[in-house]
Design a protein around this nucleic acid. Structure first.
Length: 122
DNA sequence: CATATGACGACAA
DNA sequence: ATTGTCGCCATAT
């Protein structure tokens, strides 16, 4: 079964998200950048909607650049995400996360450890 | 090929 | 702080 470029792209996105440490969050655009996809925020959203069954991707650590949960406030998905974030001691005040405080900032060597172009055969 | 649609983002009022 | 507009780009129809 040949992997389509889209599948490989999604896997790179999921991989990047797996690197977000507990207690931190990242924006869709940020994940795209790190995964080597410029202006790919929407592709990150797409990849998250297509998570495979039994995945181990911490999807809840991905929020919008403004610190809000992307789902509609009050929806089941929203509540689930908020719950999981709070379990990691990520505070949500006035419906939003303080990005200055919780935003994931990967180290240089962490990025060098996983160069964006070395992910073809994962 | 033309539009519509999104778990987005930046920016102008 | 809010809201609207536009850019972005893979998919769906």
């Amino acid at each position: 079964m040949m992997k389509t470029s889209t599948q490989k792209r999604n896997e790179r996105i999921w991989s990047t998200i797996r690197d977000i440490p507990p207690g931190c969050v990242a924006s869709y655009g940020q994940i795209a950048e790190i995964a080597g996809i410029r202006r790919g925020a929407r592709q990150v959203g797409y990849a998250l909607r297509h998570l495979p069954r039994g995945h181990d991707v911490p999807w809840f650590r991905v929020i919008t650049a403004s610190g809000k949960i992307a789902f509609e406030h009050g929806s089941d998905a929203f509540n689930e995400q908020a719950k999981r974030l709070m379990m990691e001691d990520v505070a949500i005040l006035k419906g939003r996360v303080d990005m200055k405080k919780y935003r994931w900032q990967p180290d240089l060597d962490e990025l060098l450890w996983k160069p964006s172009d070395a992910w073809d055969d994962e």
